[in-house]
Design a protein around this nucleic acid. Structure first.
Lengths: 346, 346
DNA sequence: CTCACCCATGCAAGCGCTTACAGCGACTCT
DNA sequence: AGAGTCGCTGTAAGCGCTTGCATGGGTGAG
């Protein structure tokens, strides 16, 4: 049915070897021969069988993209960026999602699925256990992590600590003193550097400003809107005098805003909120945030795996910049500590 | 290095053919033999080479997932649903994104990339031109469309017209008479059934209620937040007496809300807004919407391609239900038509 | 003019599986 | 008892490419 390499070879009057070399731009092919082969191949609508090529060469021209979610802002943007770059370089993207939450025993990511199937692996923002990384590396392919700092792996990420510090300093600069931090669930977050580092940055800023850290101002919950909302609710109960919140992600920040509204508090008049991400929909609630270039990180990581596959030396850590994106969710704290009645449920 | 089928065969004391059959659960393999092979394979950590298997069998156990975007709500959720189902059935997902906007000449989706690489194709919410569909079909693989009604292709989608009608009727029921519709750009939308059908449903409801259709109340723009915002802005200029808006997507509805705020109008006191989707973040702005099950549609579509590959007869059209999700962006129209000063820029 | 070398090409041996077909005991049926 | 069946297993021929090695016609140096 479909034309094979032999058909092209016959039609072009050369051997299959020459067709193979001509079409892949290998050296040692006469220019005119190459042209002729190209023309003939195009006429016949020839496209090489990836399976056959992989089997013969051992290369798949495919990258495995592992991500716990794809419908969250950071993840979908990273994937979009990576996919575009990989495709531009003629690489396919094999998508693997899995439940990022299940932290129970047993690997959540099964390395065997990728065996002999990809030339490289991209792991997006996922707190992998060391043994999972090991098994992935056991495949013998380059591996690049995005958004978290694997175990000495090649990584693209932001400076979480400095970013968190900058966010907190923004609040301090506005005059806030009771600044809470909302982040992921404590046990979930243990191995996952971004939340840990962001919490550290928050503390750094507080300590540097001579404010000191009140442990009651740290709230843990799911790393999403609902989690942020629940954390904020709990926070208001524990520390009703809080005037500002630094959330470790925009989605949690949005949840926090929702909880504040639920409590009848105004943002930013009563409580200021700042997040991290630069979520597209942050504008809906005027969210001030530390914006990070998600799609760029995907693209950079893609270029890194490609380089590693090509044997080009690559930097071990790529840190992308974040910038304060001021909107309307942060403002100076209210003059008086008095607030419209907020009564904890009894 | 890695164990091959021969290693397993040797270790198990059988032929490679038996190993192949045993591991793939083919019939005509003695139960104890199968067990032994399985054990040995596990011990050796044997995983069949997908390339070799594909080359020999002609099947790839891979599905191509074509989507114009992955970072938009509907798309990422569909992809997530499809990926999960496909993986559960042992299929890989090859992700292809491309610029959905570029409607200029020339195919935006290159069928050749998928040649001999997949067993089936999923096209997510994409207004493909007929020739693009043809070339995809030319690959000889099952194809199913999600969220739009290909050209007689197998499709999973909602009843756009009825959904739009229900949304509009909700507004009418609240007492609105000046009900606008915000949808995609006119030329972009021409071949794309959901926007067309949603506009038709909007008209249906208006006509059925004896209100009649004012063409000035139809606004076109990009199918995203920015587009919805621009459309709403234009709409306010053209028809300042509008009291309700039905947007063809939640993202556009959110944009509309932003534009209304920009204009100093309150939602829902001055203007009601309803969307379509059930976007996760709709709650941020209290968006009332016609919710659709996006991830389920992905899963259903996945099951359909799988069935088609297996030769199981499949329904040509699968229609998923939508439901009115009432939040706080819709309310009866203001008593008086008078409004806080809205002065069109001169 | 000859030899070494280089460039362009062809030959053919795989790559690691799947599967049509053949083989071979052990039964069943007549 | 002989022939046909059936269940299980093995043999071997590919699947459609890539690539190491061989070949052979130029080319420049000696």
């Amino acid at each position: 049915m479909a034309a094979g390499i032999d058909d092209v070879a016959r039609a072009a009057g050369v051997s299959t070897a020459t067709v193979s070399r001509a079409l892949r731009d290998l050296p040692n092919v006469n220019k005119t021969t190459r042209e002729r082969v190209r023309t003939v191949a195009a006429q016949l609508g020839y496209v090489a069988s990836p399976s056959a090529a992989s089997l013969a060469s051992g290369r798949t021209r495919t990258i495995g993209l592992i991500s716990p979610w794809i419908s969250r802002w950071f993840f979908s943007n990273v994937i979009e960026g990576a996919e575009g770059t990989l495709r531009a370089h003629g690489f396919d993207v094999l998508l693997y999602t899995f439940d990022g939450r299940r932290r129970t025993s047993g690997a959540r990511v099964d390395a065997d699925v990728l065996r002999r199937r990809v030339d490289g692996i991209l792991v997006v923002g996922l707190p992998l256990a060391e043994e999972e990384v090991e098994s992935l590396l056991g495949l013998g392919h380059p591996l690049v992590c995005i958004g978290w700092g694997g175990f000495g792996q090649v990584t693209v990420r932001l400076d979480d600590r400095a970013t968190a510090r900058a966010a907190t300093e923004h609040l301090i600069g506005l005059g806030h003193r009771r600044i809470a931090h909302i982040t992921g669930a404590a046990d979930d977050v243990a191995l996952w550097s971004p939340p840990v580092d962001r919490a550290a940055g928050w503390r750094d800023a507080l300590v540097a400003a001579g404010i000191g850290v009140d442990p009651r101002l740290e709230a843990h919950g799911d790393f999403d809107v609902a989690g942020g909302r629940a954390s904020m609710r709990a926070l208001l109960l524990r520390a009703p005098d809080v005037t500002a919140v630094f959330a470790a992600s925009d989605e949690m920040a949005m949840g926090a805003i929702l909880a504040l509204r639920d409590a009848g508090l105004r943002v930013p008049q009563d409580v200021s909120v700042i997040g991290v991400d630069g979520h597209d929909l942050g504008e809906l609630v005027g969210l001030t945030t530390m914006a990070q270039p998600a799609s760029d990180q995907g693209a950079m990581a893609a270029r890194l795996v490609l380089d590693m596959i090509a044997g080009v030396p690559t930097p071990n850590q790529t840190v992308v910049p974040t910038r304060l994106l001021e909107r309307s969710s942060t403002a100076p704290p209210p003059r008086t500590a008095a607030r419209p009645g907020f009564a904890p449920a009894s």
